[in-house]
């Protein structure tokens, strides 16, 4: 017969296995911090160097022709930020998974990605449609909104805390679609500041 300590260890290991096999726990807090820094620098470049600050839903200079070029540059900038943030997140998760003796790519990672991909793809396509119609002012609110929905959806398959970040992004998206002129500020708040705060919180809570 086992001793009492053995049963306590049994139950602890059962709990840990149930969590480990149903949640993706290799996300690093540093990924959030870095994504936030990229986003803040991106917003700064868009505002100060590319002079991008749409203040109406239908950004009127689109007809004057010079916007399409600057819009192209802003979109290129946005894609660069996305690739940097994703690349950093994957690299840090890969390192964290290795430290935990697990592989990065497993059935839960797949489930997490699928659950994020559905709202993100829908949002991405909608935003492209909006851009093609000249509704530039809605880009920032809608990226926040759909990103928030994706995070909320993903929270079932990773740290629960990410649900709060999702709700914050959704709220910022909704508020900023009302105050279109402050789109870039809300975007910097949602993708920059919120990510950094979340990343620091996650780092202190789970990685120390």
């Amino acid at each position: 017969m086992k001793a009492e300590q053995d049963y306590i260890r049994d139950i602890a290991e059962m709990r840990s296995m149930m969590e480990r096999s149903s949640k993706f726990l290799s996300l690093s807090g540093w990924a959030g911090i870095m994504a936030g820094i990229y986003a803040l620098s991106g917003a700064f470049i868009a505002y100060r160097i590319l002079y991008f600050n749409p203040d109406e839903i239908v950004y009127d200079t689109i007809k004057s022709g010079n916007l399409s070029f600057s819009l192209l540059k802003v979109m290129l900038l946005a894609i660069t930020i996305l690739v940097l943030a994703l690349g950093t997140a994957i690299f840090l998760s890969y390192k964290k998974a290795g430290k935990r003796g697990e592989k990065l790519w497993n059935p839960i990672a797949k489930r997490l990605l699928i659950n994020m991909a559905v709202p993100l793809t829908a949002g991405g396509i909608l935003i492209l449609i909006l851009v093609s119609k000249g509704l530039i002012g809605l880009i920032a609110p809608f990226t926040l909104l759909f990103y928030g929905l994706a995070l909320y959806n993903a929270s079932k398959f990773t740290y629960e805390d990410i649900r709060v970040l999702g709700l914050v992004e959704i709220a910022l998206g909704l508020v900023s679609s009302f105050y279109i002129g402050y789109g870039l500020i809300f975007w910097a708040l949602g993708f920059g500041v919120a990510h950094i705060i979340y990343g620091i919180y996650m780092h202190y809570r789970y990685e120390r």
């Binding site: 059962m14 709990r15 296995m17 149930m18």
Partner: peptide, 8 residues
């Protein structure tokens, strides 16, 4: 126990 926990 581990197998059962994961499958649960």
């Amino acid at each position: 126990l581990g197998i059962m926990s994961a499958l649960a």
